[in-house]
């Protein structure tokens, strides 16, 4: 059991050690905070991609909607920030309802539909300037609060909050995967016709996964907004929020639960610390090369390598 959970234990240990070592280094902690934001979105993306079997190029929409919803609700409706964060997730989930008709589509058709869908929200945020401040941006909204003596708006404070949030999302993902729904979803990926025979309502399950994925993405979008404390449509709905989580999830292994999280932190730190030092302009190109290499060498990602070893051993035993 310990061996099976080893990657998870190591990851948790690393999460606890980093602030002890780098706690004084604001730059590193800032990178970790951003890395964890990407990790949350990567996890949400992988949940939809792996369990739901749907590849999304539109998670920036949920990220931006969550960000704006939380910022606006806390600034204009006076909602306390912890509640507005959850509301951000809820509004993002609500916005995903508009995607439900696209669930009939599969593969590349779904990916294209959601890509177009993401743009709708960027346009809305730009055009509804009386509410969002339009392309000039929106800045006057509360930061993360201080609760029980912990200042969550500090780098260390928000770091710990994000670690807990990512941890809870990991547990939620694991619970869904282990449930009847998770088994049914895996079966669906193999043969949708056969799952119908068993009495699985495929469209309903996919809709739940989309809703859950959008909620988590919106939640992390909202967190990011209150940490950065400034929003503009080009930033909040940037394609980066769609692409970076995909790279991270695939790099880490999107069919594993921990892969997207580890992949996100690794990729983000590598991009900022190494790639940026080599190529100050256009450093994303190095990520592209890295991802291409990863797909060729280890198509199941970093964490897929663990699983691969296991099946290899099973074959040897058989």
């Amino acid at each position: 059991m310990v061996v099976k959970n080893l990657p998870g234990i190591l990851l948790a240990l690393a999460a606890c050690l980093i602030p002890l070592v780098y706690g004084g280094n604001g730059y590193i902690m800032g990178l970790m905070v951003s890395g964890l934001i990407v990790a949350g979105v990567a996890l949400a993306w992988a949940l939809l991609g792996n369990l739901g079997g749907m590849v999304s190029f539109g998670h920036a929409a949920f990220f931006g909607v969550g960000a704006y919803a939380s910022a606006l609700l806390s600034a204009k409706a006076g909602l306390p920030v912890p509640l507005s964060l959850l509301a951000g997730g809820a509004v993002a989930a609500l916005s995903s309802l508009a995607m439900l008709p696209a669930l009939r589509l599969s593969g590349p058709y779904f990916a294209l539909a959601i890509l177009a869908y993401a743009h709708i929200f960027k346009i809305l945020a730009t055009e509804l300037s009386w509410l969002t401040g339009g392309s000039a941006g929106f800045a006057r909204f509360p930061v993360l609060p201080t609760i029980a003596g912990i200042d969550f708006s500090s780098r260390i404070g928000s770091y710990w909050l994000l670690v807990v949030m990512v941890g809870l999302c990991l547990l939620a993902y694991r619970a869904v995967k282990a449930s009847h729904v998770g088994t049914a979803l895996r079966a669906m990926a193999e043969s949708e016709d056969a799952t119908r025979v068993v009495g699985v309502n495929a469209t309903l399950l996919k809709a739940w996964m989309l809703l859950l994925s959008a909620f988590i993405t919106g939640l992390f979008g909202a967190m990011n907004a209150h940490i950065i404390n400034f929003l503009e449509p080009d930033y909040a709905f940037s394609g980066t929020w769609s692409v970076l989580p995909i790279i991270a999830a695939i790099f880490g292994g999107y069919r594993t639960i921990l892969g997207p999280v580890a992949g996100a932190v690794a990729i983000y730190l590598f991009d900022q610390l190494v790639a940026k030092a080599i190529l100050p302009v256009g450093h994303q190109i190095i990520l592209g090369v890295l991802l291409a290499g990863m797909i060729l060498i280890a198509p199941n990602g970093l964490f897929g390598l663990f699983g691969k070893k296991k099946t290899g051993a099973a074959h040897a035993a058989a």
């Binding site: 088994t183 895996r186 079966a187 193999e190 043969s191 016709d193 056969a194 025979v197 068993v198």
Partner: peptide, 21 residues
């Protein structure tokens, strides 16, 4: 169903547990 339609990548027990969906 005809042709069994079992889920090849899933274990026997997982296949059976789908019957309890």
């Amino acid at each position: 169903p005809e042709g069994r339609l079992v889920f090849k990548d899933m274990s026997v027990e997982e296949n059976l547990s789908l019957g309890a969906y």
